[in-house]
Design a protein around this nucleic acid. Structure first.
Length: 170
DNA sequence: AAAGTGATCATG
DNA sequence: ATGATCACTTTG
């Protein structure tokens, strides 16, 4: 029996939450009632204003406002004018961290999974612990995983650029 | 290897 | 108001 992840799960640091999200079920309920459910296979942690790869590196702005909220809300933004990318905010209020969902079973790639699940900016800043449209469940499955550098952050500086903050199952 | 695409942010 | 940048995907 799968249970929805609640606030305590998201309250931990992004580097703890990112690997724990592997194997969890990302659930999307469409407006017509259709329910889509896919197992998460790839995540990345983005950790605060010091992390030169994190959107919060420039501090609080209109876009990054949601990163400063308490863990458990979504952060969805448009990347390269084309792709919506889905993150979950983690940690305490005032500490801007998030975990990027980079892949689910069957849809490998952060832009592909959001397209497949009809996730875009209308789902920004929703509370995953109460929303009827988007949430994450735990059915007890715990996969093996590996780590690597994060993808697509060449603009970042060391040590963040090379930090092994990407987590993925095989 | 490079385009396609548009919100966001810093500058003026 | 304008211009640079960008947590990607597809095509060649």
């Amino acid at each position: 029996m799968a249970k929805r992840l609640m606030p305590d799960f998201y309250a931990e640091h992004a580097l703890s939450v990112a690997p724990l999200l592997l194997g969890k079920l990302l659930v999307r309920r469409l407006d017509d009632g259709t329910v889509l459910k896919y197992r998460i296979t790839e995540t990345e942690a983005y950790c605060g204003e010091e992390d030169t790869a994190c959107h919060a590196r420039a501090g609080r702005t209109e876009r990054t406002r949601v990163l400063y909220e308490r863990g458990g809300v979504s952060y969805v933004y448009l990347c390269y004018g084309i792709h919506s990318l889905l993150n979950v905010v983690t940690g305490a209020e005032g500490d801007p961290q998030a975990v990027l969902i980079r892949g689910v079973e069957g849809f490998d790639g952060p832009g592909k999974l959001t397209k497949a699940m009809d996730i875009d900016r209308k789902l920004n800043a929703v509370d995953l612990t109460v929303s009827d449209s988007l949430w994450i469940e735990d059915d007890g499955f715990v996969p093996q995983y590996k780590t690597s550098k994060r993808i697509g952050i060449d603009y970042a500086t060391e040590p963040y650029k090379s930090a092994p903050w990407r987590f993925f199952t095989e």
